[in-house]
Design a protein around this nucleic acid. Structure first.
Lengths: 193, 193
DNA sequence: CAGTTATTAGTACCTGGTACTAATAGTATA
DNA sequence: TATACTATTAGTACCAGGTACTAATAACTG
């Protein structure tokens, strides 16, 4: 018996290709593998690989919760006041996606991220580096809590910024931290490198 | 002039609804708002809201990269060794999704999350609370760096755990932190509350 | 009551499929 | 070599969830 390379090999490659780049249509696949669209569909059927739309739907849903949790871009919390190089205030309402599964307690890194985000915003440098942070979580945060973060630029020695961030819920401190930030090649000029 | 509630209000609610639950079809929307499908489509057109498939496609793609970055569940980094209440080791390769947009530098909260994740894992309590953390980022982390986190349970006074976490890249320390963790009603019995 | 806006209806068309039937090409084996 | 089987391709009807467009009707407004 000859080794049935063609079909088996193609199906193996197909599976690999779909797991690597899941948003590829049957038509594109048929062009890549130089077979008809029907062959691709038979292959998918035999291997139980769902159609493109189903794969997209699954991917979209799996991750939907994470968008909410981690914020749309790089920032956690909403900036409501900002004086560059001086101070800033951001706001965040804790939701269920930020908690541990069975409890109402917000995970620490959301608090941290909120503080870090604001610290970065206040020195107007998205591409900055968290140097040293010395911080304290004073009180647990629960779902529904309205977090207000206040950042103050304390000092600016050399090229480092020291930013203090305090987060409060109803005037009560839940977090404080000191961020040493080193801006990186963004709005800076060449000579500063 | 009468307040044009109907159309304006519906469009406002529509937009809100779609941003909250983005995977809703025009047909479902038409049932919810008790208008025809055409009306829903006109509304979307006027407000520049793309069709369901486009919204799903965008969500799937936006998040496709984040899966990689944020890990499948709640954990950042892969646990490779674990002795409950004693010590644990986790691993993470820094990728582009963890960085600031134009640089190679990994954002601080990924480092923090990796450490926190491991600290939680090592006391076998997903639902624990980060009490106080005293930490230091010693060195920036870049894309491709292979991060190794080591956690040690230092002490267990009352119901608090003190866990030390060190993260290294090629034997060199990039982070250290002390986590005070208070386990919460998960694998515990009633009486402990 | 005329004019404007809002809503609904309907058609043709699109993508990216499913599910099915049927024909053809290629290979294997008695 | 004829027969059997597998692989591939072709084609049809159908589906969801739309776009883009035209046209008619309903509802307000001055």
């Amino acid at each position: 018996m000859k080794i049935k390379t063609k079909k088996n090999e193609r199906q193996y490659e197909l599976k690999k290709m779909i797991t690597e780049t899941p948003f590829v249509s049957d038509e594109e696949l048929s062009e890549i593998f130089k077979v008809s669209i029907q062959t691709i569909r038979l292959d998918r059927l035999e291997m139980g690989i769902p159609e493109l739309r189903e794969r997209m739907r699954a991917a979209a849903q799996k991750n939907y919760s994470k968008i909410v949790g981690l914020g749309i871009s790089e920032l956690i919390g909403e900036i409501i006041e900002l004086e560059v190089n001086q101070q800033g205030i951001s706001f965040l309402e804790a939701n269920r996606e930020m908690t541990f599964k069975k409890t109402d307690i917000v995970k620490g890194h959301y608090i941290f991220s909120m503080a870090e985000s604001l610290a970065l915003a206040v020195i107007n440098s998205k591409a900055a580096l968290t140097g040293v942070a010395n911080m304290k979580y004073s009180k647990p945060v629960s779902v529904g809590d309205k977090l207000v973060a206040k950042a103050e630029v304390f000092s600016q020695r050399n090229k480092d910024y020291i930013v203090h961030v305090k987060i409060t819920v109803k005037q009560e401190q839940v977090f404080r931290g000191k961020f040493i930030l080193v801006p990186l090649l963004n709005e800076l000029k060449e000579e500063e490198l």
